[in-house]
Computed example of a mutant assay.
Amino acid sequence: MHDWSMLDRARALSERGETFAWATVVWRQGPSSGKEGCRAIVTADGVLDGWIGGACAEPAVVSEAVRAIADGEPRLLLLGTSGRFGEAVPEGMTVVPIACQSEGALEIYVEPVEPAPHLLVVGRSPMARTLVGLATALGWCAELIGRTEFDEIGPRSMVVVATQGHFDEDAVEGALRAGPAYVGLVGSRRRGEAVLGYLADRGVPRADLDRVRVPAGLDLGPVPHREIAVAILAELVAFRASREPAAPPPVPARPAEAVVDPVCGMTVERIGEPVEHDGTAYFFCCPGCRDAFRRDPEAYARKDVRC
């Protein structure tokens, strides 16, 4: 991989909280336009950015990458002409028939990437700054703010309110309204009860208030502010480790209009120029397969073209 901007794009996706997949060519057999080390990013909605091969390889890689994002499992793909590998395919490798008229082949490693944890700390105290610094050292996307408006908060975000009595109620209410995975309030248990009681009187649902962790962090007793930050971070790490993962997006089904290319066996959509034979319309992944079918339609027309 020589295009270092790919790392910048991956970082931007992670900071926005978007899951994506890396697709990396780890082996090739010519002729193939994909080379060892070629890399691409595939987003959850199936957009490919980068280069791993030509028109035959890309659709198959995108489809498998979207499935990897959905189930969270990496996979090693072997792309080539259907049936050419025989018993030589290692266990655990997924064979995807491509290649129409080419004799080339590719091995592509597809790895889903979860976004960096997102932590928002509300407050300006030394403890709040220490907590942000510790989380940043872990590779988290951590931000220190001094307001009660919460922008770009998602269901994976975590919010720690450390406003020390200045606007605790507004900060907790605003955090709950944004819907993060975790809301913690730094303060004594007595102070927490007062804040939650006030919010209950203001009509905040009890189910929401029950989500607030107060006091935030592991109970270490009276300790310096740096150790309070460590205790809160430890609780956040434990929370992420024990939390049931959010339901992944459904694995996309094949399109309703998908058919099988009768020449190479690839799954294709009903787009492009079809070839009519005995009242059936056949679709192809590329002009090479279309031309092969036209030269000898009887050799391929007997294949089932339904998915």
Score class of each variant (00 low, 15 high):
residue 62 V to C: 13
residue 129 R to G: 15
residue 210 D to N: 11
residue 113 V to T: 12
residue 50 G to I: 09
residue 129 R to F: 09
residue 288 G to W: 00
residue 97 P to K: 10
residue 298 E to C: 07
residue 194 A to T: 11
residue 176 L to D: 04
residue 128 A to S: 05
residue 108 I to W: 04
residue 297 P to S: 09
residue 154 G to T: 03
residue 260 V to C: 10
residue 46 G to C: 12
residue 156 R to H: 14
residue 154 G to Y: 00
residue 19 T to I: 07
residue 284 F to I: 08
residue 209 L to N: 00
residue 191 R to C: 03
residue 52 I to D: 13
residue 249 P to M: 14
residue 114 E to A: 15
residue 152 E to N: 02
residue 85 F to I: 09
residue 296 D to N: 13
residue 182 Y to K: 02
residue 297 P to R: 07
residue 303 K to L: 03
residue 51 W to T: 09
residue 106 L to T: 03
residue 280 T to V: 15
residue 241 A to M: 07
residue 273 E to S: 10
residue 178 A to S: 15
residue 43 T to G: 12
residue 56 C to D: 13
residue 278 D to Q: 13
residue 267 T to C: 08
residue 80 G to W: 06
residue 209 L to H: 00
residue 119 L to C: 11
residue 235 E to F: 10
residue 100 C to S: 13
residue 8 D to Q: 10
residue 120 L to K: 08
residue 15 E to V: 03
residue 97 P to V: 14
residue 210 D to Q: 14
residue 50 G to P: 05
residue 124 R to D: 14
residue 89 V to Y: 10
residue 132 V to F: 02
residue 232 I to V: 14
residue 287 P to V: 01
residue 223 V to Y: 09
residue 10 A to G: 15
residue 38 C to T: 12
residue 243 R to P: 02
residue 183 V to P: 00
residue 7 L to S: 08
residue 237 V to N: 08
residue 165 G to F: 04
residue 174 G to Q: 01
residue 219 D to K: 06
residue 75 R to C: 13
residue 144 L to G: 10
residue 95 V to E: 15
residue 192 G to A: 13
residue 86 G to M: 04
residue 183 V to K: 00
residue 71 D to L: 03
residue 251 V to R: 12
residue 270 R to Y: 00
residue 85 F to A: 13
residue 277 H to P: 00
residue 253 A to Y: 02
residue 153 I to E: 00
residue 134 L to P: 07
residue 236 L to C: 11
residue 306 R to P: 01
residue 150 F to R: 02
residue 272 G to W: 06
residue 11 R to K: 15
residue 284 F to P: 05
residue 4 W to E: 12
residue 171 A to E: 06
residue 5 S to T: 14
residue 4 W to A: 15
residue 301 A to H: 01
residue 208 D to C: 02
residue 258 A to W: 02
residue 178 A to P: 02
residue 245 P to C: 04
residue 62 V to F: 12
residue 107 E to W: 04
residue 43 T to M: 09
residue 44 A to L: 07
residue 304 D to R: 04
residue 179 G to I: 08
residue 172 V to M: 05
residue 126 P to C: 11
residue 298 E to L: 12
residue 307 C to D: 11
residue 112 P to D: 07
residue 118 H to L: 07
residue 121 V to D: 02
residue 166 H to I: 09
residue 173 E to Y: 00
residue 172 V to Q: 01
residue 266 M to Y: 09
residue 263 V to K: 01
residue 204 V to E: 05
residue 280 T to N: 10
residue 37 G to Q: 12
residue 57 A to C: 06
residue 167 F to Q: 11
residue 211 R to F: 04
residue 174 G to I: 03
residue 9 R to E: 14
residue 175 A to D: 04
residue 112 P to W: 09
residue 214 V to T: 15
residue 199 L to C: 04
residue 186 V to C: 01
residue 237 V to E: 06
residue 296 D to H: 06
residue 22 W to L: 11
residue 220 L to Y: 11
residue 161 V to L: 03
residue 125 S to D: 13
residue 220 L to D: 08
residue 294 R to G: 00
residue 256 A to L: 09
residue 42 V to R: 06
residue 291 D to S: 11
